[in-house]
């Protein structure tokens, strides 16, 4: 079983971080994983995206072109990548930043106003973690508790203050009801 994940948005939205959290969890779950970021000038304030592939067999091409799971956190990425989602795949997007929905009937579409939720809860900048929580709920990719534990373990001691905030954000996403 192979899951091709594409995360896309603006630089600064924590796209690469979210991808890394998934990749790290996959590695520690004894799965094969690859994480490939976009890089170069396009990262400087522009678009950022990363391909994450999680599999129980050897991973071939690390570049995700037709994702099983697309996480779109801004309108340009939504418009660029939504048509590429595999039939039967899932699309998760930030409905507080993307004022439209998918017209495709062959994929499952999940909107979550992650940025608005984050700012309402005093968690500005943590919409990515809210989306991760939501992702766990709708995909069942990893166990919630195990993922939380891993994410917290990855936060360096110097940033311990962030632990509670991350916990809260992940929980908000997981418990979000459409």
């Amino acid at each position: 079983m192979t899951t091709n994940i594409l995360l896309a948005g603006f630089g600064g939205q924590g796209i690469l971080f979210a991808g890394k959290a998934i990749a790290k969890m996959a590695m520690d779950s004894e799965l094969q994983v690859s994480w490939l970021p976009s890089y170069g000038p396009e990262m400087r304030g522009g678009a950022a995206n990363c391909s994450v592939i999680v599999s129980d067999e050897e991973i071939g091409s690390p570049l995700v072109v037709t994702p099983d799971l697309l996480i779109a956190l801004n309108l340009p990425s939504f418009e660029k990548f939504e048509p590429n989602v595999k039939a039967g795949g899932k699309l998760v997007y930030d409905s507080s930043l993307i004022d439209k929905t998918s017209s495709r009937s062959d994929i499952e579409v999940y909107g979550i106003p992650a940025t608005a939720m984050a700012s309402d809860a005093g968690l500005t900048g943590m919409a990515n973690v809210i989306v991760l929580g939501y992702l766990l709920k709708i995909t069942g990719l990893f166990e919630y508790d195990a993922f939380l534990e891993h994410m917290v373990a990855g936060i360096p001691a110097a940033k311990a203050a962030l632990i509670e905030k991350n916990k809260k954000a992940l929980e908000m996403g997981y418990n979000y009801a459409k």
């Binding site: 890394k20 590695m27 690859s34 994480w35 490939l36 970021p37 890089y39 991973i59 690390p62 570049l63």
Partner: peptide, 10 residues
């Protein structure tokens, strides 16, 4: 190449 340099794997 750039992909191998930039990508992460275990």
């Amino acid at each position: 190449d750039g992909a191998l340099g930039q990508m992460m794997e275990p």
